[in-house]
Amino acid sequence: MSAEPAAPGPAGAGLAGVRPEPGVAKPDPILVVDGVARYFGGLRAVDVDHLEVQRGTITSLIGPNGAGKSTFFNLVTGFDKPNQGRWTFEGQQLAGVPAYRIARRGMVRTFQLTKTLGRLTTIENVKLGATGQRGEHFLPAIFRPSWAHQEREIEARADELLERFNLAHMRNEFAGTMSGGQRKLLEMARALMVHPRLLMLDEPMAGVNPALTQSLLGHITALRDDGMTIILVEHDMDVVMGVSDWVACFAEGRLIAEGTPRDIRANKAVIDAYLGSSRALPEETAPVDPAQPDEVEDTP
């Protein structure tokens, strides 16, 4: 578990020398967003002029509640349509591409409110994530031999992931019986089955107890160390400061600051944005406030 507050580690090395200002260019961006805006009626929910996400890093999007982080997430993953704007993933245009294709291209997301498939078992939930399944086509589906071999491979991979996320004991239970924290882990395991190159986690630590938060953060850094790019959305900035290589701060739909966690802590605009949300900025060494009473979801 690497919850140590880190200066840009080896993974963030590519970001050395990048100036901490909103919209700054990165040496090796995997995701480039240009002028993406979304309005709800007259309300400007998101209006981002330019944002680049460096490959192989953990980049956190922070900001007070209602800053437009989740909407921005929905926009770039194709779950909502922007009123304007373009964005590329690995150099490919994504504007107008449906969500499922964006996922297949390697940009996979999770949801703020977990979307476990309650009446599917845990293993089925994970197996569902595998791409290119022959058995998902109508006619081959009828003839088991045409997909049985591939299914065994998928199942082996799924079991590995369950083992890694400590869910193996839930393998044949309905996912609907899981606790809130287990659901978060399941969602992450399921997303990994899609072979993402960019994993986008929407508040993975929300409503999870502190011990599990540490475990989740450990999984996230391990994935980064395997070479995956990760974007985290979090409104509670303390939680992510320790693991992030780069932080982008949203307020009122706009990108107001970017930089290393150290830069962001000192940033005047960020402090102003958060002052309204009632909590002062903590000392830089405290990644998690253990006293914070997390609302833990009830097991149904």
């Binding site: 779950f79 996922a103 996979v108 979307k115």
Partner: peptide, 14 residues
């Protein structure tokens, strides 16, 4: 069955 449970989740998995 995944679509029945949650169609957004199915979509997010490609």
């Amino acid at each position: 069955r995944a679509v029945r449970e949650d169609e957004l989740a199915a979509r997010s998995l490609g």
